[in-house]
Structure formats: structure tokens, C-alpha cells
């Protein structure tokens, strides 16, 4: 790998000051370091955020919003009992991702910033508009399993690989950032960009901006009783989603009074299905309703590759996730989180 400067700032101000074009923030490094090895990422400066103070806390304020510091580890967040109780589908999504070792190293902010696992993006010898704007897209006409069916463009058909981001999108998370021009907040729905003609612009972060924290609003915890994350994959663990869905319901007196639904691995961002949510609200939960909602969630879907099969399977995953949510959040985290085989194994104690 090419030579680079390694900076380890002791404060956020130092970190911001250390940034310049060509620099990259280093969180857990579970994705960036791989990309540096393949040559897909070639930063000339790495700014290690590992020593920054105050970014490793999970705090719930008086008004009920929960703030997760950027450096909190994925495993630590998932295993935080209070957090998992209030936001069970977020914990389930976290535990369904990667492996135990990777979850220990990875950070929550890094999870938002992870890059697509499109094989053409990852290999610098290929044409990729995301990696090098204007070169084209070798994924079109190429091989691979994880391409989009929603929100893609002629310039890019890649999907966002995160599990964690899918329930965050459903729950209206907020991203707190800081940069050379001060601090600001970005609504989760606006954080990740669809590719359009600028697939290299993946997020709303401006150059030099840094994620400080994620915030889940108090209202997000109101779904705790009926919230599930469901993930299809080509093996039982340690695989990116084929399709996933985060579904959360508020059910009062047998009627859905609030619904949240987001899909993963179908687009360049976690796909919030607002139409489906509207369709669910005010009705009694049943299979036919969930099918209609799932239909609505995928109504704009078009295969970007030879992946037309992904559209019906995404519908079924969405409907199943809603059905699982309606059944109620399990008392204990399943041993195979987010798996259709969750019932096969004894639950975590």
C-alpha cells in the first residue's frame, strides 16, 4: 500500500485542523483498511479518531432522545441492555452484521460511512464512476450479487451494505457532525445520497466534516414492542444482506397507529418506504395488509442487473418483517439475529 501520514489528534479541534483534501478519517478501520489494501482507497493522510475524547458514550437525555457517540463500538452498542430494550431492531441489525471480531472493532459512525461492496468499486483496475468519476460502470454487464433495484442510475447500480443503517433510517435518526464551518445536524433520510450522475458523492458530509454522534429521537423508542430486523443472506452469518428489512409498528387497540419500514441492500441508501408506512397506519395488522404495504414499498423497483428476482424477494422480506414485528419483539435477542431461522437456536441469555 502507498505511504501515508498517520495523525492521531487528541481533540476534535485538532482533528478538524488536521484534515485536508486526500485525508481520511479512521474509525475501526474494518472497511477503509481493506480498501487501502486493494488500492481502491489511497488516502495520503489517515486521521485516527481513536483518541478523541467524549465520543464513546451512549447517553439518554431528559427528553428521552438517545445519543450515541461516533466511536461507540458496534458490539458495545448492541450489547447495551438499555439501548437494546428501547431500540431492539437496531440491536438486532447490528448483531446480524459481519462477525463478532469485526463488530468489536467497527464503530457506529464508520458503519454509516462504509463503502459499497460492489466488486467493481473495490477493485481499482475496473471502471467505476463512484471510485473515479467519469470512467464508467463495469458492474453493468459484470458479475455480482448485490446490485440495486431502487434508486439506481445509469452511472451506478451499487447498494449500501449496512444493516445498522436500515433501522436508523426507519427510526428517523439524526447525524450530528462538525467541520471547519462549525457543527450541524443532518436528518438520516438526507445523509446518504442516491447516485444520480454523481455516485462519488455518497453522503451529505462536506469536505472536512466529521461525525460526532447519532441521535435517536424519543419517539423512536415508542416502537420497541413491535420492531424487527430481517435479513436474507447466502449463509447464516458473516454475509452481506441479499435483501433486508427493518419493520416497526405501534399497535393500539388492535389498530396500527404508527408504522416504520425501511429496506436494505436494494439501493445506494437504506430505503425508507414512506408510502408503505402510510398505507399501514390506521388498519388492523394482517397478512393481506402487509402484502399491500410491501407491494407499495417496491412499486418503483426496476432491476439494475440480472437481479429481477430480487424484487419479489424484497416484497416478501418486507411483508415478513412486518408480520414478525406485529407478532411482537421477542423477549430475548435471538441467537441468530435477524435470521428466518431465529427460532432454530436457543436465545441468548
Amino acid at each position: 500500500m502507498k505511504m501515508f501520514d498517520f495523525i492521531r489528534p487528541a481533540s476534535i479541534d485538532e482533528a478538524i485542523a488536521a484534515w485536508r483534501p486526500g485525508a481520511a478519517w479512521l474509525g475501526g478501520g474494518t472497511n477503509l483498511v481493506d480498501l487501502m489494501k486493494t488500492g481502491a482507497a489511497q488516502p495520503d493522510r489517515l486521521i485516527d479518531l481513536g483518541r478523541l475524547p467524549g465520543l464513546d458514550r451512549i447517553e439518554t437525555g431528559a427528553e428521552g432522545a438517545t445519543r450515541i457517540g461516533a466511536r461507540v463500538g458496534n458490539a458495545d452498542l448492541a450489547r447495551d441492555a438499555d439501548f437494546a430494550r428501547r431500540f431492539p431492531m437496531v440491536a438486532e441489525a447490528l448483531l446480524s452484521g459481519a462477525s463478532g471480531q469485526l463488530r468489536n472493532a467497527a464503530t457506529v459512525a464508520g458503519n454509516l460511512m462504509q463503502r459499497t461492496r460492489c466488486p467493481y468499486f473495490q477493485n481499482p483496475e475496473t471502471a467505476c464512476n463512484k471510485r473515479r468519476p467519469g470512467t464508467g460502470c463495469d458492474a453493468r454487464g459484470g458479475v455480482g450479487d448485490n446490485y440495486a433495484v431502487l434508486g439506481w442510475s445509469d452511472d451506478c447500480i451499487a447498494t449500501h451494505p449496512s444493516d445498522f443503517c436500515v433501522p436508523l433510517a426507519a427510526l428517523d435518526a439524526v447525524v450530528e457532525v462538525i467541520g471547519p464551518n462549525g457543527a450541524r445536524e443532518i436528518a438520516f433520510a438526507d445523509f446518504h445520497h442516491l447516485p444520480g450522475t454523481t455516485p462519488d458523492r455518497e453522503t451529505a458530509l462536506e469536505p472536512g466534516e466529521l461525525i460526532l454522534a447519532l441521535r435517536l429521537p424519543a419517539a423512536a423508542a415508542e416502537f420497541a414492542g413491535h420492531a424487527r430486523y430481517l435479513k436474507l443472506r447466502d449463509r447464516t452469518s458473516f454475509a452481506f444482506a441479499t435483501v433486508s428489512a427493518a419493520a416497526a409498528l405501534k399497535i393500539e387497540g388492535g389498530i396500527i397507529t404508527g408504522a416504520r419500514l425501511a429496506l436494505g441492500a436494494v439501493a445506494a441508501k437504506p430505503w425508507r418506504a414512506a408510502e408503505a408506512e402510510a398505507l399501514l397506519t390506521g388498519h388492523a395488522p394482517d397478512a393481506a395488509l402487509f402484502d399491500r404495504a410491501a407491494e407499495a414499498a417496491l412499486s418503483d423497483a426496476v432491476p439494475a442487473h440480472d437481479n429481477a428476482w430480487k424484487i419479489p424477494i424484497a416484497r416478501r422480506v418486507a411483508a415478513r418483517a412486518l408480520a414478525l414485528a406485529a407478532r411482537g419483539t421477542p423477549a430475548r435477542m435471538p441467537a441468530l439475529p435477524a435470521s428466518v431461522f431465529a427460532a432454530e437456536e436457543p436465545a441468548h441469555v
Binding site: 466488486p119 477493485n123 459484470g142 449463509r235 447464516t236 452469518s237
Partner: peptide
């Protein structure tokens, strides 16, 4: 003609959970 899944993230073998 290049193999595009030439690593253990892309070339799947079973994990313990399988």
C-alpha cells in the same frame, strides 16, 4: 475474465452457524 469475488467476503464457504 477476472474473478471478481476473489476473497472470503465474496467467495463464500460455510461459517460455523451454517
Amino acid at each position: 475474465g477476472r474473478i471478481m469475488n476473489a476473497d472470503f467476503a465474496g467467495y463464500h464457504i460455510p461459517v460455523n452457524a451454517d
